[in-house]
Design a protein around this nucleic acid. Sequence first.
RNA 1: GCCAGGGUAGCUCAGUGGUAGAGCAGGAGACUCAUAAGCUCUUGGUCGGCAGUUCAAAUCUGCCCCUUGGCACCA
Length: 512
Amino acid sequence: MKSFYITTAIDYANGRPHLGHAYEKVLTDVVARFRRLMGDEVYFLTGLDEHGQKVQQSAEARGIEPIELCDEAAENFIGLCAKLNVSNDDYIRTTEDRHKEVVQAILQKLYDQGDIYKADYHGYYSRRAEQFLQEKDRDENGEWPVIFGEVEEITESNYFFKLSQHQDWLVEHLETNETFIFPRFRTKQVLEFLKEPINDLCISRPKERLEWGISLPFDENYVTYVWFDALVNYVSAIGYGMDEFEDRWPVDFHVIGKDILVPPHAVYWPIMLKAAGIALPKSLLVHGWWLISGAKMSKSTGTVIDPLDLVDLYGSDAFRYFVTREMNVGQDSEFSEERYLARYNSDLANDLGNLLSRVLTMLNRGLGGVIPSPEVEEELETELWKLWDATREETLELYNGFQFHIGLEKAFHFIGSINRYAEQRAPWKLAKSEDEKDIKLLNTTLFVMSEALRLAVGLVEPVMPETNEKVYGLLGYESDAEWKTRLVRGTDIAGNKVGEKTILFPKPQNHS
RNA sequence: GCCAGGGUAGCUCAGUGGUAGAGCAGGAGACUCAUAAGCUCUUGGUCGGCAGUUCAAAUCUGCCCCUUGGCACCA
């Protein structure tokens, strides 16, 4: 069976992990975990883009070798994945031999086919910035900004990849494959871009200007630049050229930010693949950005908080929950500590965490910590189970369409209903009664609350794997049944010994 | 300028033709198993504006305004 193959964009080594990196990892991980739970064999790739001018310059500035800088970055970014509980199966670094070999093999193939040619590139070059400038770099008076220093017109030989001849089929592919890009409206932006003729793509840099890269296999005086290096990670990591490649490619989803859709992933990459005789990706999943308006000061500390610090403060599940609950995939969203705390306190601590606390306390206090068997089913129970069945179906459908924010809303609405059910049954009152009927109701109520809680944390497992595991453990629940089976109400947990009362999401102290 | 997304209650957002919704925040109450948590009730909106289509429009059409992005060898 072919794997469900999903990737994130690879991060650029010249920088530190930030919210954007973290979000993309979490989103991709949520999809990956969801597919695994749905029964797919998932292969999840992420990695690091390590070549290029900025890395070379930063390393020089610090007096270290580029690879040392990359090793550092790799440690940081791999650390981020671990911290976020990201379940990637592999981590590709573009300085690895397995990657370089594939890049060179593909370049050689395209060169042999005549898809790559050498030509002069003429343009305005800034020595200070060590880059060619574009018309849009000019200021409003049509002058070059002073930061570029002296700008000279020069001519440089470089290698180019033929793009223009591929325009027609790409347009047709975009028009006929509605699921190629999610959300769909992004397709229009690509088509808009393709209305104008596209120029061939410059894919090399002379080594005098850029040394830190992969050498062109057919000309040792050049390295390849950006796209033929970075994009190729998606195939190099899964063994392009080897048998195993066929088990994974074509990729099911490239998860990317909206900034790198046009032109790299929607134009260059499909054309590169087609030219190399490789199948096209099935889909691109394009997410929006987190907007951090101004640099809001925290009221309590007077400092600006790094969103990633919130992972350390409140745990990875809380962070994963927040970004998944707040972001409508494809749109932009606002990030603030206030909103984070509102979600944390209200949804996680008050609704979910507190529910677990009260269930465990009641079980440990009156019933020796053992989940009783249900003994009656009246309208209150029937209603709750009906809601569960609807919630499960709706939420899975929403997850399937990447509507995680609404799916989580439904799931937490169900959690709210468990709290409501508890108030209606008031087991703390029933516990004071000697009446046979009340005892049956008490047993039923505590069972129903426990079972409903088990089901609810199961439903949010792709987003909050740690919480799921903890709550399962505390309810004494173990199962190797597949997900959809675990999400069906049963009585397996009756008779289980539960854990001590546990605060899942402790409230921060010094906040109003 | 062109293209696209968004503009619905104080805040964040659901809602694609049929009497305006949720969560949070605000107000009131009863309860007490629980992380001063949970529950019930409640305040609050001319659905960006103006026109049009329709028996009926947040929802369809047109124009305008605000906002966020994109606009080729830049990542």
